[in-house]
């Protein structure tokens, strides 16, 4: 009786853990400096989402290599994101649209 109760509790705890960890993007770039006009590529992964948010006055653009164009932040510190209709195997990347080196965070999912 006690064993089955314990097993049930463990099962519930595991389900809870899976549920809690099921939806959050991976931050592949954190305050990364990118030269003007250059790209910063993340890992080769399975993904459908790429997002960029910059620091300071720089304008960054988020893309998914070979699949999408780059979607730029409309203003400094705002968010630009690309969302695909299916998972693909590719790399998320950030393009620095500013005329000087700028710093960005990037996420994929």
């Amino acid at each position: 009786m006690r064993k089955s109760l314990l097993a049930a509790l463990v099962a519930v705890a595991c389900l809870g853990t899976v549920g809690a960890a099921s939806a959050d993007a991976v931050e592949y770039a954190h305050h990364v400096g990118i030269e003007s006009g250059a790209n910063y590529f993340g890992p080769y992964v399975s993904l459908y989402y790429s997002e960029v948010v910059g620091y300071g006055q720089g304008i960054g653009c988020a893309g998914i290599r070979g699949i999408s164009g780059v979607s730029c932040e409309p203003g400094p510190g705002e968010s630009g994101a690309v969302i695909l209709s299916y998972y693909v195997s590719s790399e998320p990347y950030i393009h620095n649209h500013a005329t000087y080196t700028s710093y960005y965070n990037g996420w994929y999912y």
């Binding site: 998914i64 070979g66 699949i67 999408s68 164009g69 979607s71 932040e73 409309p74 203003g75 705002e78 968010s79 630009g80 994101a81 690309v82 969302i83 695909l84 209709s85 299916y86 693909v88």
Partner: peptide, 20 residues
């Protein structure tokens, strides 16, 4: 933008702040 690659279609998203 109307361009799909290998059947995969991207959409681009941006939201303003409440102040914007």
């Amino acid at each position: 933008d109307g361009v799909s690659v290998e059947g995969v279609s991207p959409v681009d998203l941006s939201c303003s702040s409440p102040e914007g």
